[in-house]
Structure formats: structure tokens, C-alpha cells
Amino acid sequence: MRLGPRNLVTDVGGVRVGHAGDVRLKSGTTVLLLDEASTASVLVLGGAPGTRETDLLAPDKLVSGVDALVLSGGSAFGLDAASGVQSFLRQIGRGFAVAGFNVPIVPAAILFDLANGGDKDWGLHSPYRDFGFAAAEAATEDFALGTAGAGIGCTTATLKGGLGSASLRMENGVTVGALVAVNAVGSATIGDTRHFWAAPFEIDGEFGGLGLPSPFPADASRPKTKFDPRPGTNTTIGIVATDAILDKAAARRLAVAGHDGFSRAIWPSHTNFDGDLVFAVATGRSGVGVDPASPASIDLAAAAAAVMARAIARGVHAARPSPGDLLSVWSDLRG
């Protein structure tokens, strides 16, 4: 396996990403826009999720493809971002055809960033529908990491969080990528060190090149978590994308593997106070099918876990300081 040319989820054919947000608000939205409707599924393992249109992603449901996926800050207010993405897609004639109408299918997940020091006095209506439209309109193959889009207001137990992405190209020609907003109860770094839990998966020094600490801290296994966590105040939400040909059931298994990446990169993860969620989407652009009963399916799952772990570390590594921050950024830590 090797890096994709951008080391971003957009190395997957048929995928573009756009951001919108407000640094003063300390919140924003990220949209993964699909060039054509694509197979998707989802798995929620955190105890405090916030979602839209996730039930239709089950293998037994009618709709076979989605037009976009949304990751947004704003807690439940952020679910409005999907409406803005729908408006953009309807404007360009996209959507599921039913009774003479095109209905864009836009599942969404949100994270809680209301209490992060930003100015949330937005008046009667929240700005997230506008963020969704703007992010979809801005979607391209190159996009910012760290303090951007849904990552603007993210925090972890010890450091400012952020928006991360990574990719891998497999030997069979299939590309796997991840996109994630890291707002976890737990920590992406080991103990009090600058070293990332995801270090064993790092490629080409993409998040500092420090490897694992030596000696390993004696208290590394002691969970570091946000002070006085409350249900809904956190959440890491992500997407695993591939250009392999998958059905909904196989996409669901890919989402399971994406959660393995959470467990490799965040300690602890999937707590009662996180809404941890992974979408999985398969564009089929490679033309390569993956038989669930073949060894290739194991390689695909391993790639999904690895890119998610790397994307989480890259999101925290790329975070940048902003006025009113409650936590330091990784780049401010001393060796």
C-alpha cells in the first residue's frame, strides 16, 4: 500500500470536499460531495449521537445511493447544514427520482461545539443551512485540514481538535480515504507527551514523525478525558470512502473497520459521552469489486482502519490557534 497523490479522501475517484464556517463562532460544516449517487452505510458506536437520514442507509432500505454526506458542528442546530446541501444539489438537478421530483439524499452527523468559547449569539436562525450550501458550492479536490469546516470548533481532552484526512492506494488499484472531525472526550496523544496513539500507522512523517515514546509513560493507560463531560458535548464523526464496488452490507463492514481506526487513535473512544459515528461510501470508480469472502476484504478493512487513525492524528496535528481558544494546539507543545 502507498499514499494517494494528495493524501486526502479526494484521492478516491468521484469525491470532492468543501468547508464553510466562522472562526468567531468557532464552528463550521464540512461536506463530502459525490459526483454521482453512491452506495453508503453507517455505524454509530458512541452513546450520544446526532444524525439525519441514517436509517435509510440500512441494507434493507429502498434508497441505494447518497448524493453527499455532511459533518457539522453546532450540535442539533448543525443538522440544518444538510438542508443547505440539499438546496445546492436540487439546484443542479441531483437527487433520488420519485413521483416526478428529484430528492437529494444527504445523511448528516453533528458534533457538540457550543461550549468552546465561540460567540453563538446568532439570533433566531442558526447559520448552518448557509454553511451547508456554501460548503457544497466550494467542494473541490484540495481542501484544508485542522481548523477548517467542521473542525473549526473541535477539542479533545488535552488539545484543540480539528478536521483530518488521509488516503491509501492498495495493490489491487483500490483507493481508500478517510475524512474526520475530531472532537473526542479522550485524547489523541499519549499521556503528557506529543506522541500520537496513531504513530504505528504514520507514513512519511505526516503528523510529526515522532513515533511512539521511549520509554513508554507508566501512566499512559490512564484515560485522559475532558473535565466534567456531559452527554452530547463531544463526538468524533468520520467518513471512510473507497472507489471499490461494494453493496450496502459491505459498506457497513467498512464503517466497522473505520471505528477500529478510532480505537487506534483516540484513548478512550466510543464512550457514553461521545456520539462517535462513521459513514462508509463506495463510489465504484475503480471498477474493482471486493468479495466479502476473500482475503482482499481483510486488506480493505485494514486500510480503512489505518487511514482513519492517520486522519484523526492529522486533524489534531494541523489545528491552528484562534482567538478565544480554551486549549493549546499540538504545534505549541514542547518536545
Rank of each mutant, 00 (worst) to 15 (best):
A58T: 13
A58Q: 11
D60V: 15
K61F: 12
L62W: 10
L62G: 05
L62H: 13
V63N: 01
S64E: 15
S64I: 07
G65R: 08
G65M: 11
D67E: 13
A68T: 04
A68F: 08
L69G: 05
L69C: 07
L69P: 12
L69W: 06
V70F: 03
L71S: 12
G73R: 08
G73Y: 14
G73W: 13
G74W: 03
S75R: 05
A76T: 14
A76F: 14
F77K: 06
F77V: 06
F77P: 08
F77I: 05
G78A: 04
G78W: 02
L79Y: 01
D80T: 03
A81S: 11
A81V: 04
A82V: 04
A82W: 00
A82F: 05
A82Q: 00
Q86I: 11
S87R: 15
F88I: 00
F88L: 01
R90N: 06
Q91P: 00
Q91N: 07
Q91V: 01
Q91E: 14
I92G: 01
I92E: 00
I92K: 01
I92V: 10
I92D: 00
I92P: 00
G93N: 04
R94M: 01
G95M: 01
F96N: 00
A97P: 03
A97E: 07
A99I: 04
G100C: 06
G100P: 01
F101Q: 10
F101G: 09
F101C: 08
F101L: 13
N102S: 03
N102F: 11
N102A: 11
N102W: 02
N102Y: 10
V103F: 09
P104R: 05
P104E: 09
I105F: 06
I105D: 05
V106L: 09
V106T: 04
V106A: 05
P107M: 06
A109S: 14
A109D: 13
I110G: 03
I110Y: 02
L111K: 08
F112R: 02
F112Q: 05
D113I: 12
D113R: 06
D113S: 09
L114V: 14
A115R: 13
A115F: 14
A115W: 12
G117I: 08
G118W: 08
K120W: 14
K120N: 11
D121W: 10
D121H: 14
W122I: 03
G123T: 09
L124N: 10
S126L: 02
S126E: 10
S126P: 10
P127E: 02
P127Y: 01
Y128N: 10
Y128C: 08
Y128Q: 11
R129N: 08
R129V: 00
D130I: 12
D130Q: 14
D130H: 03
D130Y: 13
F131Y: 15
F131M: 07
F133W: 15
F133N: 04
F133D: 08
A134V: 09
A135Q: 11
A135D: 13
A135I: 11
A136S: 05
A136Y: 02
A138E: 14
A139W: 05
A139M: 14
T140C: 13
T140P: 06
T140A: 15
T140S: 15
F143Q: 15
F143I: 10
A144H: 12
A144K: 12
L145R: 08
L145A: 07
G146M: 08
T147A: 04
T147Q: 02
A148W: 07
A148R: 07
A148C: 05
G149V: 07
G151E: 05
G151D: 01
